[in-house]
Structures are given as structure tokens and as C-alpha cells.
Amino acid sequence: MGNLIKAEFRKTLSLKMWWALMIPAVVFAFLFAMGWGAVTNDFSDFLGSRDTRELTDALGIQTGVLPVGLLALGHGINIGTIFPIIFGVFALAGEYTKKTITTTFLTAPNRVSALTAKMITYIAWGAVYGLIISAAASLGTVLTVSSARLPTAGQWLGMFGAGVLATVLATLFGIGVGAVWRSVVGSVVTLIIWMLVIENVLVFLAYGWGKITWLGGVLPNGTVNGIVGAIGAEAFGAAGVKVPGLDSETSWFLQFAAGAPGAFSWWASALIFLAWTMLFFGAGWAVNQKRDIT
């Protein structure tokens, strides 16, 4: 198994894809954190004075020290998470495209060993992506949010941990989708359209037409975003334990501002997205046990 894992790392490092996707992940995480940091730094005006006063009174804190940096940090990490998903797609679908999957399977004792080695390797890569993306989002947040509104040390550590967890699961999710589809282009295009467009439209329509607030908390993009975003929402009482007197509209708005509309809590989002990941990864694992590679 050790040799198979080494081979996977060498295979990945010999290609440009790992850093070609890392660059836009860092840039987008940094810019989104900066943009949201600039907006949320004046969160009192952004929310409205009445809602802000009610919220801060319920939380027992002063308006000027609302930890709005969590919102910027969450959005930065979440936008960067799309790139580990794409990176994961290349893990198996890329090998089918380049016709190297035959060598991979034939040089391993069996396909289970080959796929296990690939899974372990990409868990490590997912963690690397998570740390770097979180660092880039943190820099963008620090540059635009005043010091009194930045996350506490514990909140920052929690965001980093959640960011790593989200990118690890996102990478495995991408592997599963690519393994099932076996097409890099098809998988990437479908995932981008679904996660950045279709799902967001569905969440907004569900809320706008039927006041359905939970849809984003069960769909793939919403749940992977909720792993990080719900920490910010929880800090404002909009996820997890509810703040008394906080109405559903303000709660949903705060969840949206945190990048996690519909999220129940960070751990619930993690469990639901883990289920989506295992669904696709398990399906990809199953179909590749018998798939013809000639």
C-alpha cells in the first residue's frame, strides 16, 4: 500500500493540475474574503439598525464588536472549495481520459488497493488545499475587517479546521463524481453549473415562493458550504442554537450572509455532505470494480 500511495503522489506531482487549480483557488478565496470583508465591516448599516439592535441585545454583545470577519472568511473558503472538487474529478476520470487507468489497475495487486491508495493520497491533497485556501481567505479578511470585528482565536481555529474538513470531503466528492461519469469535461461542467447556478437558483426560489428555508441545508453545494459557513451563522444565532426573538427571515438572511443559507449547524452540514460524498464515492468505487479498462 505504501508503494501505491507513493506512486499516486509522484503521479500527481508530475502533472501541472495540482498547482494550476491551486492558483485560482487562492486568488478567489482571497478576493471573495476581501470583498465580503469590505461589505460586512459596516454590518450595522448592512443589516439595518433595528435588526442589529435586537440581534446584539439577544447575543449580549455590542454592535461594534460583531464578529463579521467570520462572514468574510466563510465566503472566501467556500468559493475556494470548488477547486478541490475539480481536482478530485481528475483523480480517476483524468486517468480514463489519458488512458493511464489500465497501468494503474494492472500494477496494483487489485483494484481495491489501487482505489484505496488514491483515496488516501487525495485526502492528503484535500487537506493541503484546505490549509492554503483558509490562509488566503484569512489574509483577505484581515486586510478589510477592523480588528474588533475579527474572529476570536478559537473561532479562527474552528474555521481552519472546518475548511480542511470541507476540502477533504469535497475532493473525495469530486473523485466519486468523476469515477461514475468517467469524463473530466462532463463532470466538471455539470458540477460547476449545478453547484454555482442551479442549486443557488433552487434555494432562492424555494425561499422566495414557499419560504422554504431548509433546502440549502440538504443539497450538496449548500452542505459543503455549511461546514464552514454555519460557524459564522452560529456566531450570530442563525444556526445551531437559535437566539430567542430572531425571526426566520433575519435568520435566513444571516445564514446567507455567512454563505450557508439553510444550514442547520456546521456538524450537521458535515454529516449530510459526508452522505453525499459516500453516495458518489461508493458508486464510483462499485462501478470501477468491474469496468472494462481495455
Rank of each mutant, 00 (worst) to 15 (best):
G186S: 11
F281C: 08
S146C: 10
T52F: 01
G259K: 07
A235K: 08
S265Y: 05
G76I: 06
W267E: 05
L205A: 15
R111H: 08
S14M: 11
T52V: 03
L73R: 04
T102C: 02
L246R: 04
S265E: 04
L196N: 15
F105I: 05
F105R: 00
G154M: 02
S134Q: 11
Y122R: 12
W276Y: 05
A117P: 02
W276R: 06
L254Q: 01
A233P: 00
A162Q: 03
Q155N: 11
L70E: 04
A230T: 03
I212H: 12
G88S: 10
I120M: 13
E249L: 13
L279T: 01
G174S: 11
T141P: 02
I293D: 05
R149K: 13
A206G: 11
M195F: 15
V185Q: 12
D57P: 07
N78R: 09
L205V: 15
G140V: 06
V228F: 04
I120K: 10
G217T: 00
I272G: 02
A238Q: 00
D292P: 05
F83K: 01
G217M: 02
A136Y: 07
T294S: 14
I82T: 15
W156K: 13
L59V: 03
A230H: 00
G140Q: 07
W194M: 15
I231S: 02
V287E: 06
V287W: 10
V287I: 13
W36G: 10
D51K: 11
A72I: 08
F236P: 00
I101P: 05
T152H: 14
A117T: 04
G262C: 01
A153K: 13
E8F: 08
F264P: 06
M278A: 15
S147G: 09
V164N: 03
W214T: 08
L202A: 12
W252C: 05
P24N: 10
G232W: 06
L150D: 09
A179M: 13
M195S: 14
E249C: 07
G222K: 05
G161Y: 03
I293R: 04
V89G: 03
M22Q: 05
T144I: 06
A33Q: 07
I231Y: 02
S269C: 07
T167Q: 12
N221T: 14
T250W: 02
G240Y: 01
A179F: 04
L13N: 12
W125P: 09
W266V: 01
A233K: 00
A270R: 06
P109E: 06
T100A: 02
T103W: 01
F46R: 07
G88W: 02
V65M: 13
T141C: 08
V184Q: 03
W214I: 08
T223A: 09
A72T: 08
T63R: 13
A20V: 14
S138E: 14
L191I: 15
Q155R: 08
S265F: 02
L73M: 14
S265I: 00
F256I: 12
A135F: 13
V180N: 00
